[in-house]
Design a binder for these strands. Sequence first.
DNA 1: CGCCTTTGACCAGCGC
DNA 2: GCGCTGGTCAAAGGCG
Length: 206
Amino acid sequence: MDFSHQNPNFNPNYTFFPETPNPMSDFQFSDYLMLDDSIFDDDDAYSPQSMASTEKDMAAATELSGATSKNSNMQVIYITSCSMDLFSLRLRKCKNGVGKNKSDLGVRVAFRMKSEMDVIDDGYKWRKYGKKSIKNSPNPRNYYKCSSGGCNVKKRIERDINDKSYVITTYDGVHNHDTPSMLYYNQMPLMAPNAWTLQPSSSSST
DNA sequence: CGCCTTTGACCAGCGC
DNA sequence: GCGCTGGTCAAAGGCG
């Protein structure tokens, strides 16, 4: 089964994450995903280096997710369309990597999706602890902490300045517990990860 | 009663 | 040093 495609409009190193038919895929991640590259193993097929996007895309994603110079170790992955289940599987992968040598707050993930709702139900329980007006943005930024005891994961949610139909969500840290939906994913056959990560750019494999 | 949101105050980092 | 900005705290009130 071929899950991997190449998009001719982008960088040859670009990897396309296809949609997969799944009842959990009730919405799709449409634009940017940003990760701290230290969570990846060197030989990991998930490595950002194998999924480099254009400089323009990276700059845009960096701006969207609020990254600054102090986050310069972050790398940007461009995803045209990725369903919720695939994204969660990637987070599980990240969590496994972080546990080895980084604190729970070593990961930042940001993505932008089209949604009428401000808060996306990602399976975890969140408690709102702040709200701020952001300079040059008509939309406030909301701050949430994971309600689970001992879990220090935070997330920020705000509307895209340029297109209010998009919501930008930034996660800081990795949950130290599972969520019911994660249990669901654990029971899924692991077909997607092996398929769509092992075929980056066949043309660039020199 | 417990947990949540709201919201103003406070604090720290950064640029000038 | 000062002001601006983003992030967090904590008190108050609401809701199930």
